[in-house]
Design a protein around this nucleic acid. Structure first.
Length: 691
DNA sequence: TTTCCCAAGCTTTTT
DNA sequence: GCTTGGGAAA
């Protein structure tokens, strides 16, 4: 064990006076956190208590007191969060924070792995698998073992991926995962064990890493090569971690490693806002922090600056319904405020009309669209609303919907880029080859085996007995790849070349709806223009997926910033003047999957808590009383058990009433719905509705 | 071996 | 409404 020697500040470097008024800008608790000396610090911060502000001032303080920005690491949950914090910090210190290392655990680990890939026997240009790619690999491996024709039902590829991912993220053996969550597959334990090994071998052989590998293999790298660990850690003189309650076991272990040399870690989080259990997050990490880092200074932020008291009253009430007790009671000095509203609507279309109309009224009153958010449990819940907003020309961005890089045609195109980067990338080859006429799974597998065997130039077709039914197509493919791979071809030109090649394929394969897809190819081309080099572009596509609607919103950049539609998960850490929580139904929020498991149910409750605490001034919780489900047709819903029976003084019931004579739904003019009346019980609907 | 067609099954949240 | 899987024709 090396001896630790602490260097005192260099006396010749006279400390310049601080430019920010830390004591004046922050409350005492925030100030204590922002200006804490080195060593481990845990900041337990309730919703809306200025957690982000504190972290930003912490960054500024560290920089002002002499820590070189490039030696500070800010780990966040999304790139969006990192970007926002760094921008705000840069604004405070006019740019002096810009060189802070920031990003997600995954992105930070990727950078480390890139640098040290050979130490793990990986090619420097390894490529990254998203969840769908990982499932595709497993599909191939499962077929290779003949498991697809097993007597008893074998897990489908997405399930396999989920099982293996859970095992990695939670640091558990397959056996434990099966016992806990997949008892129906326990009979396949040995087979699954073998398949897991196949998967690991396959990735190693073809230079592939999935999301979990980014974390897991970084830890392995540190374990096997302590010198790398020390080198990385020495450059992390201060580690700041946001949303610590949502770290999983691997991430908590990584934090320890990053902070190994200096022990300067600040973790910020709120156990009541832990909402990522499904991907291995463990809120107990936050309580274990002081044990993990002896000498931890624990600070609490309790004073809420965001919401009005009525909103906090509801939030406190919601949290009080949890099985587990939280020592949280949010309070504020913000006076007054409307009570949150509970709005039952006859069906989802009415719900959408209500939201759209209130949004327009608020805009009239001067609330900008971007300060209003509509939140929901799952992306499909917003379908009717999207239709309505489009109909009324209200611009919106939707976060948490389909990502550009998840669309089939974009995956096709990206696969081409990936083989340029990593010719061993067998999943990408598999995708590319099967796009060609006359090539199916079998031929693709044979070709891949040949392609990824060691050859001088993986992009040349030598003599080989190719079947005539596809040889021309194959030649065209290789010609394109070789041309795009010429040294000196800039990324946009590479992409342009690939798009030109791919376009006819796209028309053929997606003949029903290719026009829309061709548009996306244009977007993709535009993205490549500002992307840096190919490796960086691929990494950002994998780790920082672009929302499809965000692209559209950008296309109309001169318009006003759009209304925000978001899953509750994606809205974490954000705040809005007005928040709508739609589809607050039993079976939706809480999700139907969570009903049997008390822990899962608690997480759903925390989800509602997160949603509620996003609101500053106005909060509407709405739900449709009638729903269409694909199979069952329409049926009566039950409001979420989390809002059922909440006292009316905390959540005021509203009733929607149709104005004037009943109109047919399709003919209803946009403004037909009047403002809500008040007072009456919420479950009564005026007659005259077309049901 | 590929491709097409039909039936079955399932569907959350994200890096 | 969509993906996935199985079966049969080309």
């Amino acid at each position: 064990m090396a001896r630790r020697f602490v260097l005192k500040p260099d006396p010749s470097a006279a400390p310049s006076p601080l430019t920010l008024d830390y004591a004046g800008d922050l409350n005492p608790q925030q100030h204590a956190a922002a200006t804490a000396p080195g060593g481990p610090v845990l900041v337990v911060a309730g919703a809306g208590t200025g957690k982000t502000r504190t972290l930003i001032y912490r960054l500024a303080y560290l920089v002002e007191t002499g820590t070189p920005p490039e030696q500070i690491v800010l780990l966040t949950f999304t790139r969006r969060a990192a970007r926002e914090m760094l921008t705000r910090a840069a604004a405070l210190l006019d740019g002096r924070c810009s060189r802070v290392q920031g990003g997600t655990f995954h992105a930070f680990c990727l950078a480390i792995l890139r640098q040290h890939a050979p130490r793990l026997g990986l090619p420097a240009h390894f490529t990254i698998l998203d969840a769908a790619d990982a499932a595709d690999v497993l599909d191939v491996l499962r077929t290779a073992r003949g498991l697809h024709r097993a007597a008893r039902r074998f897990p489908r590829k997405r399930t396999l991926q989920a099982i293996f991912s859970a095992a990695t993220n939670r640091g558990l053996a397959l056996e434990e995962i099966l016992a806990e969550s997949y008892p129906q597959f326990e009979a396949y334990r040995d087979t699954l064990d073998a398949l897991q090994q196949d998967y690991a071998d396959y990735k190693q052989r073809h230079g592939l890493l999935d999301y979990d590998d980014l974390l897991h293999r970084t830890l392995t790298l540190f374990e096997r090569h302590p010198d790398v660990r020390d080198q990385v850690s020495a450059r992390c003189r201060h580690v700041l971690v946001d949303e610590y309650q949502d770290t999983n076991r691997l991430q908590a272990a990584l934090v320890t490693q990053f902070a190994h040399v200096h022990g300067n870690v600040m973790a910020v989080g709120d156990d009541a806002q832990s909402i990522y259990r499904f991907r291995g997050a463990d809120f107990r990490n936050i309580f274990a922090f002081p044990e993990r880092f002896p000498g931890t200074r624990v600070l609490k932020l309790e004073h809420n600056y965001r919401s009005t008291q009525p909103i906090l009253d509801l939030a406190n009430h919601v949290l009080g319904r949890a099985t587990r007790k939280y020592e949280k009671h949010l309070f504020t000095d913000v006076r007054g405020g409307e009570p949150p509203a509970l709005v039952p609507a006859p069906d989802a279309r009415y719900e959408a009309r209500f939201v759209a109309q209130v949004v327009l009224e608020l805009r009239e009153q001067g609330v900008p669209l971007r300060r209003i958010a509509v939140l929901f449990r799952s992306s499909a819940n917003a379908y009717e609303l999207e239709v309505e907003l489009n109909r009324r020309n209200i611009p919106f961005v939707k976060y948490g919907g389909l990502k550009l890089s998840e669309a089939a045609h974009i995956k096709d195109l990206v696969a081409h880029l990936r083989v340029l980067e990593n010719p061993q990338d067998a999943v990408a080859w598999n995708r590319i080859l099967q796009l060609l006429e006359g090539i199916g799974p079998k031929t693709a597998a044979d070709l891949i085996a040949w392609l990824t065997a060691a050859r001088d130039d993986p992009f040349r077709l030598e003599e080989r007995p190719f079947a005539p039914r596809y040889v021309e197509a194959l030649k065209a493919l290789f010609e394109t790849l070789r041309a795009a791979r010429q040294p000196g071809v800039p990324l946009p030109a590479q992409v342009e070349r690939l798009v030109a090649y791919y376009e006819p394929i796209c028309r053929r394969v997606y003949y029903e709806d290719y026009p829309r897809r061709l548009q996306d190819l244009e977007h993709f081309l535009a993205l490549a223009e500002h992307a840096g080099d190919r490796a960086a572009f691929l990494a950002s596509l994998a780790l920082d997926p672009v929302e499809l609607t965000a692209l559209e919103a950008e296309a109309r950049a001169d318009d006003e910033p759009p209304l925000v539609l978001s899953t509750i998960h994606s809205a974490k850490g954000l705040e809005f003047n007005t928040v709508f929580v739609i589809h607050a139904l039993d079976g939706v929020l809480p999700s139907g999957y969570a009903l049997k498991d008390p822990d899962a149910l608690d997480e759903e409750l925390r989800l509602l808590y997160v949603a509620v605490t996003r609101a500053e001034e106005r909060l509407f919780i709405t739900y449709p009383m009638l729903r269409y489900q694909r199979y069952q047709g329409e049926y009566l819903t039950r409001p979420s058990r989390f809002i059922d029976g909440v006292p009316e003084r905390l959540l005021e019931p509203w009733t929607l009433v149709e104005e004037g004579p009943p109109a047919l739904p399709d003919a209803a003019p946009p403004e037909a719905l009047p403002g809500a009346s008040d007072g009456t019980r919420g479950d009564e609907i005026d007659d005259g509705l077309p049901f």
